[in-house]
Design a protein around this nucleic acid. Structure first.
Lengths: 201, 201
DNA sequence: CCGGGATGTTACCGGTCGGTAACTTTTCCG
DNA sequence: CGGAAAAGTTACCGACCGGTAACATCCCGG
């Protein structure tokens, strides 16, 4: 038995800690879970956690940075998959969002939840998330311009309101089919481009 | 000096406690403030707090019940002020929402924030909020039907997505004019009623 | 094989948390 | 005025929080 337990993935502790934190944050909330529980769930201990992260707040920020990184990579990938089709990118993004929201019931976007749980405007995670939201909105605005909307700012805000609203609405049961209706509404919005500049099909 | 301090309003402690909790919850988050701080901010002490509320969770629930009560009263008042004008009610609601969101910068809806901060599905405040959200969505759906939309379910979801999205977006700086655009979008939606049943001018 | 850095273990720190007991003071009303 | 209910005061409880010190151990590359 030289190999202790290879059942556990051989991921380095740092990434196991972030993965465990992501899981616990989602189920119990960021402030509802202690560092000890995170370390234990990661199959390690508090000391190792503090060797990799200066503080719990920094761990939270790093966890948020990972989510942001993946989200922006997905935007990039989507733009590459639909070249010269800004409307298609927006439509496909709404489709993916709806699918993701249907998968994880309750607890909408952990980025939004983190903003709600961390009111301190100087919290490292908060600035990470807000900067991401600004970049994302600029990207959406650019897409709306490329899609040829007559009022890109208005339509960019419409898109953002719909997407963020969907993330919020999953927390409240009772609103049925918000996922399908989200893509229907975005598709309807996209169909309204009067000058379908660079629309391929 | 028989009257100690009449500078403080003579509200009974119970309401002072809820008011203090509302203020602190908004500025520091629900989980970020302790009962002792709430009692002190209310000009009283922990024992009195616990004579009026069985636990912190029950205080949170009572605070949420107050918000819900006022919100539903405002819906009622709006319906009474615009009789036989469902579209006008929806439009006016978006206007009021935009004004409220502009007033309290950052930290969108405390009801949404509470859902994010209290993941436990059995938390008393959570059920209070979710039941309210269901009632509110039923009300919006009824208004959409009365307004004569061809697809009331879709438009009710659109309205909810826009409103909840606006509450979420105020947490992320950088999205400008979401308030004005919210009312523009709702008015545009309302203008789309093909059968303006009972629309008065 | 051996040495050093990365890990694991245990115990501990001060502080704060939600919640309670016992008791004193105020208030208010019959 | 009298007396009881309500409110205030102080001290305390066990549990947990984020964070650290000291030390044992493992693993891997030179």
């Amino acid at each position: 038995m030289t190999a202790k337990r290879q059942t556990e993935p051989i991921l380095p502790p740092r990434e196991r800690i972030i993965a465990a934190a992501a899981d616990l944050f989602q189920r119990q909330g960021i402030r509802g879970v202690g560092v000890e529980a995170i370390a234990e769930a990661a199959g390690t201990n508090k000391m190792t956690l503090y060797r990799h992260f200066a503080s719990k707040d920094e761990l939270i920020a790093e966890w948020a940075r990972g989510i942001v990184r993946r989200k922006e990579a997905e935007w990039d990938e989507l733009a590459a998959r639909h070249p010269n089709d800004a409307a298609g990118v927006l439509s496909e993004w709404s489709r993916r969002t709806a699918a993701k929201l249907a998968a994880l019931e309750q607890r909408g976007s952990m980025l939004l939840n983190a903003l709600a749980e961390l009111p301190d405007p100087d919290h490292p995670a908060r600035v990470v998330i807000q900067e991401h939201k600004q970049r994302e909105h600029r990207r959406v605005l650019k897409l709306c311009r490329e899609a040829g909307f007559q009022d890109p700012d208005l339509y960019a805000n419409l898109f953002s309101l719909l997407i963020e609203g969907a993330h919020s609405c999953v927390q409240c049961t009772g609103m049925k089919r918000f996922g399908e209706d989200l893509v229907r509404l975005v598709d309807r919005m996209v169909a309204n481009t009067p000058a379908p500049a660079a629309r391929r099909g």
